[in-house]
Design a binder for these strands. Structure first.
Lengths: 211, 211, 211, 211
DNA sequence: AATGAATGAGGGTTCATTCAT
DNA sequence: CATGAATGAACCCTCATTCAT
């Protein structure tokens, strides 16, 4: 009771709820990239957004929910990107496969800030069911699509490999390349990473290598 | 009054410094696996070790140092493992390469608890110079060795690939497979992971595939 | 483009200041009864009134003032009730005394919600001068009236007791009965309480007992 | 993680857990009396005890538990007092009854600080089941004992009143007198209150009045 | 007159660290 | 060596209050 202090207020912004939430999620990503997940606090996020302390609870109720929404945002953005890449690619299964291999290293997805967020959540996912669920659900869908495409290519090209294994290998390869980019950004550019990823595909499906 | 009383000695734990530290590092690994890095506290660790609150500061001065030592321990153990695997393998470069690809999925290295620790630290490594340093230094050495072996195999087999790229690809592949095992342990066994890793090698060096 | 559009008027609540304030005070009483004084917030009150957050500050400037007005309201209502009861009673001092003893257990005054409010404020009154003042001022007047009536009865009946003591005793008795009703409503009805209160009077003034 | 500031520490006290808890409960009583329940914070209590912020959670886990223990303490102390008063009184039921009526105004029980605490908790008891439970349980026992004694006196003296009603009336009277002492300490001393309480008894049991 | 998004001081609680025992 | 009571900075969250709409 009796909030004693009375002070004049500073600026006041008005934005739609949607905008505010997006703004806060962006700020969260920056904060995780800058300070790490374990040192991302309500203060680092709200200050990164140039807003007040209470704003996060106002829009997300709790820190936990903010983090979950942030993870969901990243995951959703990724999903949209690979769907789009797949749709924009040529008609052949192999072309689509290459497009998917490449999209992981696209400017919009493969930013250091966002990689940091992926790994931050993966790092906690063992002990946080919620995180793991969000991650694995998205990943399952992606793997299925990849496996389907591999299957097609295998049938067309008469390859001897197993579709599931190739899809899993590609996923793993790209995940590992992200890790490399996170840990040694100076030694691994997105361009190089993409080449390695594609050369994996070429190794598996030598008959489809262009040229 | 005569000194007839003999105070019963309070039980005394006598463990060498070395032992105590090892015990605490083990407890830290368990705690990170169980609660995650961000919810690993001095209390969770010391309770995991069945020791008192103050013990960690006594032996490691600070929580930060405990965590660094834990990471170093894991990294060192890994380094020892792949050195040993390489030495125990057959004489040919290709055999050594396979041995290295396989050691990542060895029982002693590839435990869920330890994977959780690797990713926990990787997740924070973007913002923690110390962690990143420990990780990249070890990784650099490993990559050099791998690259050297690849070089030998390439020369011997007249392959057209670049050694550095293959080594990096192998590292990435295995890292990505670890991630898969961490997130979906039910869908990815160490055995399967090893097969995928080796089949990557076979794809790159088809002339060396046994049989 | 012509001004063809007619913006639908947002609904407009038009209630006089008086009505709004009364509505908010009622909501405050309900909130205190439901959540307790210490967990009554601007939010619980405005939601109880189905109005917006800012409404209270608009009408009462501050939470503190809302609470004071609420206490004043309850106290004023009580005062009006006993005045009316006294006026409506028979002409004799004793009859008036009985009417006053009884009014405390009247339906309009002795509601659980309101008892909760009385005790909520009494509970804070030790440390809140404002509350104590409102309470004691009203009580002083009541006690004076009671004492006067007792005096009359004593003189008429030739009793040996002291008027002030009897009046104080009656006040205390009724306050204590309220407490009983608050804490154990199932074991103490207003009817029972009234009987106990009246029997106190009869004990003090045995010559006036009807019948 | 990484508690950054390192500062020298001040004095350090050692006391048994029991003592510390008692000390904190005393401090809580003082704080409630001084600031009221709703403005009693962890800070007011720990500062009242001249101890650090964290001490309460260390010993009571939460503020809620501290408050419950404080209420229990007061209630228990009261119970012990009236038991002792009853045992120390003369053998007759009436004497015991007088002793019980008087003990409420004993120096050890009837201190303003403690009255403030009683009413603070009563004020919240409507909405706090835990508080109400502690209060009513203790009160039920007391009422039973009182009723038993009244019964005896009634039988011995051939009175026409009902034991339960007299007991309830006495309890209510004393509770109401406490309220009076809380709100108007200058106008109501413990001595006066005791007299009013006893004169209630005398009114009910005129044959037992001494002298 | 009324709304409700935004603010930020202050609340309860956690936890790395210290130190008397 | 080892313990664990004690500390207090910093955390997340609540809520009275403000003010643009």
């Amino acid at each position: 009771m009796s909030q004693t202090l009375i002070k004049p207020r500073a600026k006041r912004r008005t934005a739609s709820k949607q905008q505010r939430q997006a703004q806060l999620i962006k700020a969260t990503i920056r904060s995780i990239a800058k300070h790490g997940l374990s040192e991302t606090t309500m203060a680092t996020v709200s200050s990164e957004a140039s807003l007040s302390q209470g704003i996060i609870n106002l829009h997300f109720q709790s820190k936990d929910r903010l983090l979950e929404e942030t993870l969901s945002h990243i995951v959703g953005e990724y999903r949209a990107a690979w769907y789009k890449a797949m749709d924009s690619a040529g008609d052949s299964a192999y072309e689509k496969l290459e497009a998917l291999a490449a999209v992981d290293f696209d400017k919009r997805i493969c930013q250091r800030n966002k990689l940091a967020v992926w790994f931050a959540f993966w790092g906690e996912s063992r002990s946080r069911l919620t995180y793991r669920k969000i991650c694995t659900e998205s990943s399952r869908e992606y793997r299925q699509v990849l496996t389907g495409l591999c299957e097609e290519v295998i049938v067309q090209g008469g390859y001897k490999v197993r579709a599931h294994q190739v899809a899993t290998g590609l996923l793993a390869m790209n995940g590992g390349l992200w890790l490399d980019m996170l840990l040694s950004p100076t030694e691994m550019s997105a361009q190089q990473a993409k080449e390695i990823s594609l050369s994996y595909l070429w190794g598996v499906f030598p008959g489809h290598v262009p040229g």
